[in-house]
Amino acid sequence: MLGFLLKRLGAGVVLVWVTATATFFLTNATGSDPARRIVGPQADAATVLAKRQELGLDRPVLERYWDWLTSAVHGDLGVSWFTNQPVGGTVADALPISLSLVVAAIVLTALVSVVIGVVAAVRGGWVDSALQGASILAFAVPNFLVGLLLALVFAVQLGLFPAIGYTPFAQDPGLWAASITLPAVALAIGATATVATQTRGSMIDVLGQDYVRTLRSRGLPTRSILLKHALRNAAPASLTVLSLQFIALISGAVVIEKVFGLNGIGERATSAASTGDVPVVLGVVVLTVVLVVVVNLLADLALGWLNPKVRTA
């Protein structure tokens, strides 16, 4: 198990390095001129040149890459060209917002999709058809549209939740939960449909297997068969889909953050990309890839816990 973990960690480090390197060279190939943008339209050529030197843009690209890489390895992601904030701090400020959103969405997805999947598999008939129909609908509707509707009804009309903004957990846990509920629900709906469909399929497969029939014939309570035996064997497939969904949710959060005025990782990424703030773009990319690696690692661990066969793989 330890060897497996180390191998996964090693692959993760390589992934982070490759992605960051690709991003660095891609952002350098855009041909944009951040120095001109920073000093403004009235500045003369000498000022633009001075700014370019200040940002180090006059140096060879490989030299700049090496500097960035060595600093990044030591935990220093540089300073934003436009806001003068350290990138580490900028990303650290935005991370709790996006993580709150995505983790809440994934928890919602996991809980709701298991319930829907199991009920649909066990009850069959019209319940199954209804739930499947609802899943297709939920999957088809774009999450920003759901977000818009939720904000309009539950925040603007009913005033039950805030329409915009984020309250840190440390400041007020109740308001924190309120501020992420609507965006998390909007984000979770599509993922729930996907995972529920997967869970339903695996449950139907597992429930049709011989050992379940044997358990039934020995008089075990249905509840125990379902939750203790069948779900445990149906879970790995759902868990894999869920971990993939987590990654999809991070990108889905970009749009949802905009709708709810949450200045999370997505907002930082889009504004940095549109202004050409390369240090911030790189910081966001590194952090997002690290997140993806960690989540995959956790999913692998969970799979191992659910299914001993995986541990030896």
């Binding site: 005033g159 903004g165 109740g174 308001l175 309120a178 509920t181």
Partner: peptide, 15 residues
């Protein structure tokens, strides 16, 4: 967590 989220409602204008 979900319960907390549900109970947090009503914070509409205060945040």
């Amino acid at each position: 967590l979900l319960l907390l989220a549900a109970c947090g409602g009503g914070g509409g204008s205060s945040s």
